[in-house]
Simulated scan of single mutants.
Amino acid sequence: MNQTKPLHEGFSARAFARRVALKGSETLGEDHGDHRLNPDLDAVIAANPLRDAAVLIPIVDRGDEASVILTLRTVHMRKHSGQVAFPGGAIDPEDDYEPEKAALREAHEEIGLEGRHVELLGRLPRYLTTTGYSIIPVLGLVHPPFDLTPNPDEVADVFEVPLSFLMNPANHRRESRMWQDKERFYYTIPFGDRFIWGVTAGIIRTLYERLYS
């Protein structure tokens, strides 16, 4: 007898949306962030005011295999220069202090993604950073066809990574380096010649733990 596969299985955009819907009635849970792998950073984060920010996690509908849009920040950016990142930035008064508005605005400013192509699904827990941000990751499905125009002042490149690759824990590496005379741990997710690490890898790991683990 043939068995029907649950609607949330697989890595299509719609399967992703159904996973989000299944979690929709649950609380977002505790904050994630740099302190999750380094508990002593709680005090460092708490010692300074955090600026509210939002990023868009753009899940592109590519049929059976959805992909995720990521950017490579230019090397002259003040923070996180040269790193792989989600489109996003600070939540401004013009956004009415709403993370969704900020995420969509930043995605349009950074990569030219128009909001009419994005179907908002929900949020992940806040991600707190030692660089002074409290980030709300906003989940959105991106419906083709769409055109992207990277802002050369902020974005050196735009590329897509299969959702199935990012949600495979075998591709998540826990690494460390010395910072202020202490060993600090963080996730990395190498993808071809791209090296995803830091906040972006941490948010991807949060997405995996929230929806797939």
Score class of each variant (00 low, 15 high):
35 H>F: 15
81 S>K: 12
187 Y>M: 08
46 A>G: 02
81 S>Q: 10
97 Y>A: 12
192 G>E: 13
180 Q>F: 12
151 N>R: 09
149 T>Q: 08
206 T>D: 07
144 P>L: 00
78 R>K: 15
152 P>Q: 03
179 W>L: 12
137 P>F: 11
67 S>R: 14
11 F>N: 02
129 T>S: 08
168 N>D: 13
133 Y>Q: 15
84 V>Q: 06
177 R>K: 15
191 F>G: 00
135 I>D: 05
17 A>D: 09
91 I>A: 00
90 A>C: 06
110 E>G: 12
88 G>I: 03
59 I>W: 04
69 I>M: 03
15 A>T: 10
29 G>H: 11
209 E>D: 08
92 D>V: 14
17 A>I: 08
203 I>T: 04
110 E>S: 10
185 F>C: 02
127 Y>R: 05
62 R>T: 04
211 L>F: 09
61 D>P: 01
208 Y>Q: 04
98 E>G: 07
89 G>I: 01
193 D>E: 07
184 R>L: 06
142 V>Q: 12
179 W>A: 06
137 P>L: 02
30 E>V: 14
166 L>E: 05
189 I>L: 04
123 R>F: 01
116 R>A: 13
60 V>I: 07
105 R>V: 01
208 Y>K: 05
110 E>T: 00
14 R>K: 13
130 T>A: 14
114 E>K: 11
19 R>Y: 11
122 G>Y: 05
190 P>F: 14
117 H>Q: 06
193 D>I: 06
142 V>G: 12
62 R>N: 13
45 I>V: 11
85 A>I: 06
150 P>V: 03
178 M>G: 15
5 K>E: 12
158 V>C: 12
213 S>F: 08
146 F>Q: 04
139 L>Y: 00
118 V>W: 00
71 T>V: 10
178 M>F: 13
204 I>F: 14
108 H>M: 08
82 G>F: 08
188 T>H: 00
2 N>W: 11
213 S>Q: 10
194 R>E: 09
55 V>R: 02
8 H>R: 15
83 Q>I: 05
39 P>V: 04
108 H>W: 06
63 G>A: 05
68 V>G: 00
117 H>Y: 05
54 A>W: 01
161 V>C: 09
59 I>M: 04
169 P>M: 02
23 K>C: 03
32 H>G: 14
16 F>L: 10
23 K>D: 03
57 I>R: 02
208 Y>R: 14
108 H>D: 06
138 V>Y: 05
137 P>H: 14
204 I>Y: 01
212 Y>E: 02
132 G>N: 02
122 G>F: 12
65 E>N: 08
167 M>V: 12
61 D>N: 12
164 S>K: 12
5 K>A: 13
212 Y>C: 04
206 T>Q: 06
50 L>G: 00
159 F>H: 03
170 A>V: 10
146 F>Y: 05
3 Q>M: 15
36 R>P: 00
9 E>N: 13
63 G>Y: 05
114 E>M: 11
12 S>E: 08
139 L>N: 00
54 A>I: 00
87 P>M: 01
213 S>C: 13
51 R>K: 10
68 V>I: 07
